[in-house]
Amino acid sequence: DDWEIHFNNITIRLHGVSEEQIEELKELIKNGAHEEELRKWAEEVNR
């Protein structure tokens, strides 16, 4: 699925990401992940 997530003036566009991966991302954000951590997560997902 395609997703677009907005938070802290950042837009993250995701393509072909599962519901499970979105839940992981929500947890990262909820736990106060920094932009660098989110980038690493996105790189892993996009492999």
Rank of each mutant, 00 (worst) to 15 (best):
D1H: 15
D1E: 13
D1M: 15
D1G: 14
D2Q: 12
D2P: 09
D2T: 15
D2F: 15
D2R: 11
D2V: 14
D2W: 15
D2L: 13
W3I: 12
W3N: 03
W3Y: 15
W3P: 03
E4G: 04
E4A: 09
E4P: 02
E4N: 07
E4K: 07
I5G: 02
H6A: 08
H6W: 07
H6M: 12
F7C: 14
F7P: 01
F7N: 01
F7V: 14
F7G: 01
F7L: 09
F7D: 01
N8R: 08
N8I: 13
N8F: 06
N8Q: 12
N9R: 06
N9M: 14
N9S: 11
I10Y: 04
I10L: 12
I10P: 01
I10G: 09
I10V: 09
I10N: 03
T11K: 06
T11E: 06
T11M: 09
T11V: 12
T11L: 12
T11S: 09
I12E: 03
I12K: 03
I12D: 04
I12W: 01
I12G: 03
I12L: 08
I12Q: 06
R13A: 11
R13C: 13
L14C: 10
L14E: 01
H15L: 07
H15I: 10
H15V: 10
G16T: 11
G16W: 09
V17L: 13
V17I: 12
V17K: 01
V17P: 13
V17M: 07
S18F: 04
S18H: 07
S18M: 04
S18N: 07
S18A: 06
E19N: 12
E19R: 15
E19W: 13
E20F: 08
E20K: 11
E20H: 09
E20P: 03
E20D: 07
E20T: 10
E20C: 05
Q21N: 05
Q21T: 08
I22N: 01
I22W: 07
I22P: 00
I22F: 09
I22A: 08
I22V: 08
E23H: 11
E23A: 13
E23Q: 12
E23C: 10
E23N: 13
E23G: 09
E24Q: 11
L25P: 00
L25F: 13
L25C: 02
L25M: 06
K26I: 11
K26P: 00
K26C: 15
K26V: 09
K26R: 11
E27I: 12
E27R: 13
E27P: 00
E27H: 08
E27A: 12
E27Y: 10
E27D: 11
L28W: 02
L28F: 02
L28G: 00
I29A: 02
K30D: 04
K30R: 13
K30W: 07
N31M: 10
N31L: 06
N31W: 07
N31R: 12
N31P: 00
N31D: 05
N31G: 07
G32M: 02
G32C: 11
G32Q: 05
G32H: 09
A33C: 11
A33I: 09
A33E: 03
H34D: 15
H34L: 10
E35T: 04
E35H: 07
E35L: 11
E35W: 10
E35S: 05
E35K: 05
E35Q: 04
E35I: 14
E35V: 12
E35M: 07
E36T: 09
E36R: 06
E36I: 07
E36H: 08
E36F: 06
E36Q: 07
E37N: 03
E37G: 03
E37V: 06
E37C: 03
E37P: 01
L38P: 00
L38D: 00
L38N: 00
L38W: 02
L38Y: 03
L38A: 01
R39Y: 08
R39G: 02
R39W: 10
R39L: 15
R39T: 08
R39E: 07
R39A: 11
R39I: 15
R39H: 07
K40Y: 05
K40H: 09
K40C: 05
K40I: 08
K40Q: 11
K40T: 06
K40L: 12
K40N: 07
K40W: 05
W41Y: 04
W41L: 01
W41R: 01
W41H: 01
W41V: 01
W41M: 01
W41A: 02
A42S: 06
A42W: 15
A42R: 02
E43Y: 06
E43N: 04
E43G: 02
E43A: 07
E43Q: 06
E43I: 06
E43F: 04
E44M: 04
E44G: 05
E44L: 03
V45E: 03
V45Y: 10
V45M: 06
V45N: 05
V45H: 10
V45F: 13
V45C: 03
V45P: 01
N46A: 14
N46Y: 11
N46I: 14
N46R: 07
N46L: 15
R47M: 15
R47D: 12
R47G: 15
R47L: 15
